[in-house]
Design a protein around this nucleic acid. Structure first.
Lengths: 342, 342
DNA sequence: GTTAGCACTCCAACTCAACGAGTGCTAATA
DNA sequence: TATTAGCACTCGTTGAGTTGGAGTGCTAAC
């Protein structure tokens, strides 16, 4: 027995209907609401076959059928193929816009969630080797020095430094020159003891300030090291009865609040993501145990060669896959627009 | 009939027990687990009185009693008086520590939530008249200028500005001097057209850059204008059955996710808060309709004269008030420590 | 004033039957 | 041979009793 066209159509109908209602769908429903013009009895036979093939399942003997993970998988693979290709082709060339990127991504997450009624997450792109691009030391108050550090990707970090004895303008100028000539273009691994020693020599009696600034740089780069994730619409999962029983909902919501599990998810999917397109994880395929009753759709965006982040949707398995993929797509276009405008 | 000491003790016992169990408490329980040495019948009589006085209520005829809002109010007012005074006395003198303050407050929120098992919120202190303290323009790349703006409270903002024709070092120096001499110490209302015109004159052919920088300043100050709120432990509310029915929980969680309702709450409680101490809102007293089944405890902290933020706890009405107030207190001490150390 | 005792109330949990949606199977039909 | 009508069967859901227990109010005795 194999999967002929009619079976696929019936499977499609079952899935579509189940996506809408969340209830098991019976043969009579399919018979009435499709243009196949088959009696419920015939549908029953076909559905029986589909069950044997593992695409649908009965939650209990006298209930309708619901799709299995395998069924969803077929649906996604077959019916979405076009859409997915479409998107893979449009290589988003996102202009870097590092300051305010947090707000932007938060906004993206929000849009995603509002448009889909599912939960969204967006990860901040990470540069692999964070290089120092520019350092500036300036006096804000007599004992307060401001260190501005710009790292690769025009990410700007600030750190106030308290000094006990004030530095005069010349010293500040000199320190700025020393700092920039020594450190520009280096990442953390390249700033070694020998280098630090030399800088401190040049700084003379102000070597303690250099120490503080180096700490600030380390801190700034370290800060960028942990993958930041923005989520939105976490409470949307409560809209789907199959996910909103106390136990499950609580675990899921907790996962969205404490994001460190999500970073694992992002990292896991990153490593697999040789193709930088859209990926769909259904049920147990999802990289996190808590999401075993969910589907996860992720997309990768690149802001420059090798620097990319993820955007994703988490929702029930009866997720409106077409819409989700569509939304991810439009949102990428919008992202593009925003980046280009600024 | 008035509220004698024994009635208060019984009321106390009812509330304490209800806080623990979340179940209506009966006369027998009180009789057994207090040192009053009264039979359940006597307790029954007293409870009947307490009900008549409006401190407790029966959810249905043959059930135990649960405290009314009035009951909780008495409990809080009477039994917490000492604690509240204690805290009002300890005027927290929080040293300002503006950069990284976001992380710090986030941490505070987390600690609060973890310690209490309720939901916490922390608002960022706001300066009323945001004055420009320091401006710095520097070249990061040939067409990329970085504007650093420090405003009152040592809040640092950055903005990248793209220029079409590069500025040489002298021009940058000159612009920095112009910007700082003209703008230092001013807030948004004081930067008027006349001033802007004068600055542009001084900037000569680079007046467009001045325009961009002014925009950046406006943006930076605007950004600080909206009250930022950090929350933690939103999912904790699901631990309390009386709050975790689908409808209520969903609304509450949504409120914590979309924080703009919380800003209203903070602002409302601010205006009332002539006393900068701890305030308890029980049930309908809470400033937000969604929290009508909750209690809200807020505390005000001051980082300098007139600049304060709020920290607060939202939980079920059967909240462990003593613990919450205690935790708020310890956390304030910790906050103090952190500020002083740095 | 306190307590023991008892009748009463009412919720929660359980059982049970009726119902209905949906199935599988068989026999008839095109 | 594929499709369909018909029917018996299954099983979860719903709603109506039933019961037990926790808790109360009241009364009479201490």
């Amino acid at each position: 027995m194999d999967l002929d066209e009619r079976k696929v159509k019936i499977l499609q109908a079952v899935i579509r209907n189940y996506l809408e209602t969340g209830e098991p769908v019976g043969s009579r429903t399919i018979s009435k609401y499709t243009d196949l013009n088959l009696s419920s009895a015939t549908i029953r036979n076909e559905m029986s076959d589909l069950e044997e093939l593992g695409y649908i399942i009965q939650p209990h003997t006298s209930a309708g059928r619901i799709p299995t993970d395998k069924g969803y998988r077929l649906y996604v693979d077959n019916m979405m193929e076009d859409k997915i290709h479409e998107i893979e082709d449009m290589k988003e060339e996102l202009e870097k816009k590092a300051d305010k990127i947090e707000l932007l991504l938060q906004h993206v997450a929000k849009l995603l969630a509002v448009n889909t009624n599912y939960t969204s997450m967006v990860s901040k792109p990470q540069y692999k080797h964070k290089k120092v691009k520019f350092i500036q030391l300036s006096e804000v108050e007599v004992d307060q020095m401001l260190t501005v550090i710009v790292i690769e990707g025009n990410i700007v970090k600030n750190k106030m430094i308290k000094v006990t004895n004030p530095l005069n303008k010349e010293i500040v100028l000199k320190l700025n020159i020393v700092l920039n000539t020594f450190l520009q273009g280096l990442d953390l691994t390249e700033i070694n003891m020998a280098l630090i020693q030399k800088m401190k020599e040049q700084a003379g009696e102000y070597n303690d300030v250099v120490g503080l600034i180096l700490d600030a740089i380390a801190e700034a780069i370290q800060e960028e090291d942990d993958l930041e994730i923005y989520t939105s619409g976490a409470t949307n999962i409560l809209k789907y009865p199959e996910l909103s029983d106390a136990q499950k909902a609580s675990e899921l919501l907790y996962t969205f609040e404490e994001k460190e599990q999500l970073t694992r998810l992002i990292k896991d999917t990153n490593s697999e993501a040789e193709n930088h397109g859209i990926q769909v994880y259904i049920g147990d395929e999802a990289p996190l145990q808590v999401m075993k009753d969910c589907s996860v759709v992720t997309a990768t965006y690149e802001i420059e060669e090798g620097v990319y982040g993820k955007i994703g949707i988490i929702g029930p398995k009866r997720m409106d896959y077409e819409k989700v993929v569509g939304t991810l797509q439009t949102l990428m276009v919008q992202l593009d627009d925003i980046f280009k405008k600024k």
